[in-house]
Amino acid sequence: MELTTFWFILIAVLWIGYLVLEGFDFGVGMLVGALAQDDTERRVLINTIGPLWDGNEVWLLVAGGATFAAFPEWYATLFSGFYLPLLLILIALIVRGVAFEFRGKRNERAWRRNWDIAIVVGSAVPALLWGVALANIVRGVPIDKNHEYVGTFFDLLNPYALLAGVVTLAVFFVHGCFFVALKTVGDIRHRATKLGVKVGVGAAGPAVAFIVWTGIDQGAFAVWLFGLLAVISCVASLALALAHREMLAFIATSLTIAFVAIMLFVGLFPDVMPSSLNSAWNLTTTNASSTHYTLVIMSWVAVIFTPIVLMYQSWSYWVFRKRIGVQHIPTEVLAR
């Protein structure tokens, strides 16, 4: 296997890990406004991801760093052309992280309500825009012969990309519901399952439409295969949730996200950023890559440190595996 292909696969794996792990983070963040009925329940939801959310975001940092080092042309074109949506995502992630840390600093209703709004918005915006960004990357954007993006922000808001954004928003929401059902006890657990199934059924139409659209666009058998696997795992997640098999339902939504991401990366390869103006101007794993020597050094670093990172994160999930409920939250009386 060529090193350029190896690094394309590794970056795809990093993105899949980020979307699966941060996906339920985003879902739980949106549930702070959609599921919780009082401040105690909101604290339960936040506590389910409290030890995990910042570690999950490391996958994004590593994916970005790997792209910069392995495919600098891809990184340059992507971050210049997608500057505004990526800036909005960055601002949302910053606001969301600050909200997690600051909402408990004062014992006032208005203070916590405002930070809760920040958590919901800071979770929903990236959930929507990551779908828009990934869909544009796969389908192609206006890139000239110098590998520079020559479109506008509104070129990114095409029907295919917006449909992808709606799908990622809905799927992450359902993913978060099943994570909450897995991590909580009592009434909030059952309400999370019911809400996840309801939203999942509603999201099925847009999700299937996006998968079919992608299959028609890309035409490859592997794209259709992983799209079909995504549909099967999505249906399985809803059935397992109705059967109160929370762990299996959560695994199924994880597989749904992973299969959709694999479908997109399979459709993209060997390009890393196609040009909608002229296929001869596509950025590929060959013309966008770093030197062979750089890739060799990076490969040795990845082989040594990737297993260590995976073992550490797996250990952290194991440590914080127990369920929580409102009975585990100390009672507070909030001031106005």
Rank of each mutant, 00 (worst) to 15 (best):
M1P: 14
T4Q: 14
W7H: 13
A12Y: 04
L14Y: 06
L14H: 00
W15Q: 08
W15C: 14
I16F: 01
V20Q: 07
F26G: 14
G27W: 06
V32S: 13
R42V: 01
I46F: 02
T48K: 08
G50T: 04
E73R: 14
Y75S: 05
Y75V: 01
A76P: 00
L84S: 03
L88T: 06
A92W: 07
L93S: 00
I94F: 10
I94N: 06
V95G: 08
R103G: 05
R103E: 09
G104H: 11
W111F: 13
R112N: 03
R113E: 15
D116I: 12
I119H: 05
V120I: 12
L129D: 08
G131E: 02
V132F: 02
V138I: 11
G140A: 03
I143H: 08
D144N: 15
G151S: 05
F154C: 03
L156N: 04
L157D: 01
N158Q: 10
A161D: 01
V166S: 07
T168N: 09
V174P: 03
G176C: 09
F178P: 09
F178S: 09
A181M: 11
K183T: 04
K183M: 04
T184K: 10
G186E: 05
R189E: 15
A192K: 02
K198A: 15
V199L: 04
A203K: 10
G205A: 15
P206S: 06
D217A: 14
Q218W: 00
G219N: 05
F221I: 12
A222R: 09
V223S: 01
L225T: 12
L225V: 12
L228H: 02
L229I: 13
A230V: 08
V235R: 05
S237I: 04
L238H: 03
L240D: 08
L240W: 09
A241I: 03
L242K: 15
A243P: 00
H244Y: 14
L248V: 05
I251R: 13
A252H: 11
T253H: 03
L255T: 06
T256G: 01
M263D: 07
M263A: 13
F265T: 12
G267L: 02
F269S: 15
D271T: 12
D271L: 09
V272W: 06
M273T: 06
M273F: 11
M273S: 11
S279Y: 05
S279C: 00
T286I: 11
S289M: 08
S290N: 15
Y293G: 12
V296S: 10
M298P: 02
W300F: 15
I304R: 10
P307F: 10
V309S: 13
K322A: 09
V326I: 14
Q327L: 12
I329F: 06
T331V: 15
E332R: 15
A335G: 13
